[in-house]
Amino acid sequence: MDTTLKINGEERVLQADPRTSLLDALRHHLGLTGSKKGCDHGQCGACTVIVNGRRINSCLTLACMHDGDEITTVEGLGTPEALSPMQQAFVTHDGYQCGYCTPGQICSATAMLEEVAQGWPSHASADLSGGMELTDAEISERMSGNLCRCAAYPNIVDAIRDAAGKGER
């Protein structure tokens, strides 16, 4: 079946079996291999992409459910010549080692800061009515869906804090 996806600002028509996950559609049908498959079960976050402004696990959703949706993958956030502020912060703070979880971390962190800006509370938030402080605990909790086995977590938290303009620890 045909599905029209707006990926990184460009309309792409996908012809695929309706059982195709958004992740497989990106990687196998559309040649966008930046998004990674770490578990295919929504438990590791390596496949995180941004759909209509929200971060989701692209392995847990079918591509055909996203007709007309705006999808941003890591390829759409920055380029080697012009890194996004989040990507630049990961360089500054050494926020990875093997790089496999990194595209998911970048997409997740980028959308996460937007969630905070919109006042969505998390499990770590003291106040559920919004306006939370972006503490380290808040960042860690909100990023706990993105596994990094190299465990660059302390540096990832530093990078996100920096990208959010919250300065050094």
């Binding site: 930046g34 390829e75 790089g99 496999y100 970048i106």
Partner: peptide
């Protein structure tokens, strides 16, 4: 020294 691997990993250009 900042890692030269960084840019390809950050932009999804790694080749796994």
């Amino acid at each position: 020294s900042k890692r030269r691997e960084d840019v390809r990993f950050l932009t999804g250009d790694g080749r796994y």
